[in-house]
């Protein structure tokens, strides 16, 4: 399998406070480090889950990948071609799609559904034949009746709006779809429909997906690989099934344990993870997770751990992570 998207040592910083004054006096502006040392690749036809608490940098990563957020250092490649220039990102946007967390809010409110799903063709000047006919086809692909083309976004239900977003994302048959919380706000019975639709289309069109979510139960079922973020760093990434079966980073383990079980016989009485995610302004020294880690040692408080290989395609950023016996 070849990689569709490659990220190497990506770092994203934001200028902190007013950037004007330091620039005037010729000093470097203070910068807030949002993402650092992100190395990740998404293979063709693969579905990657990106997991972490709010504030861990998941959405920022997706935005940086599409060039909506400038990278401070590191390299990104799409199908082997390096990204960075304006033109490269413009070309990238033809091949990728980002699905937003709130489907209704991500649809332009005064446009009709039919115009919205066919808009990518207009923007990229792609031939689409009869616009009405193309809209009907796209809507049919996502299981929506053609009559919905005449509706405005606010007239749709959550599930319908989600499907319209899928149709719009797939209009130009992209290579990679980034989906931010694709099931947020949906009922469980509808959640499955949307996920099944996405994985069905993935198989048929050989798409790659990156699914950003904090819903571990869902990620477990629909992704091949999983990457866990904490305070803007990847703490573990590996094959979904293996990571769930035997998480190597204590943070991964506590996230999995924190998930409420729909089974009273599996109630847990101890608390898997205490405290809150620290502020980006005050990153803990050493391993950034040590303030909440049940297994933290003196070494963890001082020395920042590097990513360690556990097995091929499986890494964890922890001093205590042991490689898989071969």
């Amino acid at each position: 399998m070849t990689a569709v998207f490659d990220i190497e040592a990506l770092q994203v910083d934001l200028p902190l406070g007013g950037a004007l004054w330091p620039r005037l006096i010729g000093k470097a502006a203070p910068r807030l480090n949002i993402l650092s040392d992100i190395t990740l690749s998404i293979a063709s036809g693969e579905s990657l889950g990106l997991v972490g608490e709010s504030g861990s940098g998941k959405t920022t990563l997706a935005r940086a990948m599409l060039g909506l957020m400038p990278a401070s250092s590191g390299t990104m490649r799409f199908e082997g071609a390096p990204l960075g220039s304006r033109a490269s990102f413009t070309a990238l946007r033809r091949q990728t799609a980002l699905m937003f967390q709130d489907p209704v809010a991500s649809l332009s409110p005064r446009m009709r559904v039919g115009a919205l799903v066919t808009e990518p063709f207009v923007i990229h000047r792609e031939p689409m034949g009869n616009r009405r006919e193309r809209a009907r086809e796209l809507l049919e692909t996502v299981g929506l009746p053609a009559a919905i083309a005449e509706r405005f976004p606010h007239e749709l239900s959550g599930g319908q709006a989600r499907r319209v977003c899928v149709a719009r994302a797939l209009a130009l048959t992209p290579r990679l779809v980034l989906a931010d919380e694709p099931t947020a706000g949906l009922d469980v019975s509808v959640q499955g429909e949307v996920l099944n639709l996405m994985s069905g289309l993935r198989d048929r069109l050989n798409l790659s997906f990156m699914i950003i979510s904090h819903n571990l139960a869902m990620v477990r079922h629909v992704t091949d690989r999983i990457a866990i973020m904490y305070l803007g760093r990847l703490v573990e990434s590996g094959p979904t099934a293996q990571v769930f079966a035997n998480p190597r980073h204590p943070y991964t383990a506590s996230l999995i344990a924190a998930e409420p079980h729909p089974d009273p016989r599996r109630r847990r009485d101890d608390l898997a993870i205490k405290g809150e995610i620290p502020s980006l302004l005050q990153r803990p020294a050493g391993c950034e997770f040590h303030t909440r880690c049940p297994r933290a040692t003196d070494r963890c408080r001082v020395e920042p751990p590097a990513l360690r290989a556990i097995a091929p395609g499986w890494q964890a950023r922890c001093h205590l992570a042991e490689p898989e016996p071969t």
């Binding site: 980002l98 332009s108 409110p109 923007i123 990229h124």
Partner: peptide
């Protein structure tokens, strides 16, 4: 900053 304006950017709108 609205989602739909961001969404338009991501699909490459000028």
């Amino acid at each position: 900053g609205a989602d739909y304006i961001q969404a338009e950017r991501t699909i490459g709108a000028s």
